[in-house]
Simulated scan of single mutants.
Amino acid sequence: MKKVILWSALLLPLTGICQQQTVSDTESLSDLNLHAIMTFLSKDSVPERDVQGDFNILNAILNKDMGEGALKKEMDALDMVRDSIAFYHLVTTKPAAIYQKKLLLKKQFVEEHPDSYVSLYELEDNNGMYTADSYALAYEKLSDRLKKTYAAGRIRDRIKEWKKLTPTGIQAVNFTRKDQHGKTIQLSDYRGKLVLLDFWGSWCGACRQSHPHLKEVYERYKNKGLEIIAVANENVHSKGTPLKERKAAWLAAIKKDEVNWVHVLNDEGSGGVDIVNAYQISSYPTKILIDKDGKVLMRVSSLLNVEMDQMIKSILEKEAKK
Score class of each variant (00 low, 15 high):
Met308Pro: 04
Tyr139Gln: 15
Met298Thr: 06
Ser270Arg: 07
Glu27Arg: 15
Gly205Asn: 09
Thr241Lys: 09
Asp198Ser: 08
Glu234Leu: 02
Ser42Phe: 03
Lys163Tyr: 11
Ser238Gln: 09
Leu303Met: 10
Leu187Ala: 01
Gly205Ser: 12
Tyr190Asn: 09
Ile315Lys: 02
Asp179Thr: 12
Ile17Leu: 14
Val296Thr: 07
Lys239Arg: 15
Glu319Ala: 09
Gln20Trp: 01
Trp7Pro: 00
Val110Arg: 03
Leu214Thr: 10
Pro13His: 11
Ala206His: 08
Trp200Pro: 04
His89Thr: 06
Gly272Gln: 15
Gly192Asp: 00
Ile288His: 05
Tyr117Phe: 15
Glu74Cys: 00
Glu307Lys: 15
Met129Asp: 13
Pro47Asp: 15
Ser24Lys: 05
Cys207Val: 04
Ala249Asn: 13
Ala151Asn: 01
Val273Cys: 05
Tyr284Pro: 00
Lys163His: 13
Glu140His: 02
His211Gln: 04
Glu124Ile: 07
Ala70Ser: 13
Arg156Thr: 14
Lys255Gln: 14
Thr241Tyr: 00
Asn233Gln: 11
Thr26Asn: 08
Ala232Lys: 00
Glu27Ser: 11
Tyr150Lys: 14
Gly240Gln: 04
Lys193Phe: 06
Gln21Lys: 06
Gln186Trp: 00
Ile288Lys: 05
Asp54Asn: 12
Asp31Tyr: 00
Ile170Asn: 01
Leu12Val: 14
Leu6His: 03
Ile228Gln: 07
Gln171Ala: 14
Tyr139Asp: 08
Asn59Gln: 10
Leu71Phe: 13
Ala36Glu: 09
Asn260Arg: 05
Tyr190Thr: 05
Asp144Gly: 03
Phe55Gln: 11
Thr168Arg: 09
